[in-house]
């Protein structure tokens, strides 16, 4: 989780990603951010986030995104 928070903080240092729960709904993350976050996650955690998991619900909070990473790591 810390490594994920680090990836996100690089994009927006002023945001507290550990508590924010509306990253997409409030347009904190845009498509540039989503693409680079997915790429970073895929590289660092050795997973491949599939297209059908790239939906707003999985990106609204760091916690939701971390849950997705863990789910993919288990597969």
């Amino acid at each position: 989780m810390d490594e994920l928070l680090e990836i996100l903080s690089e994009l927006h240092p002023e945001i507290d990603f550990s508590t924010h729960t509306a990253l997409i709904d409030e347009a904190v993350l845009d498509s540039f951010d989503i693409v680079s976050t997915i790429t970073e996650i895929n590289e660092r955690f050795d997973v491949a986030i599939p297209a059908d998991k790239i939906v707003p619900e999985n990106f609204n909070s760091a916690a939701a995104l971390w849950a997705l990473v863990e789910e993919l790591e288990d597969e």
Binding site: D30, S31, V35, A51, D52, I54, V55, P56
Partner: peptide, 10 residues
């Protein structure tokens, strides 16, 4: 809508 460019299936 701009937001859709983050979510390819949508």
């Amino acid at each position: 809508p701009k937001g859709l460019f983050s979510f390819p299936v949508k």
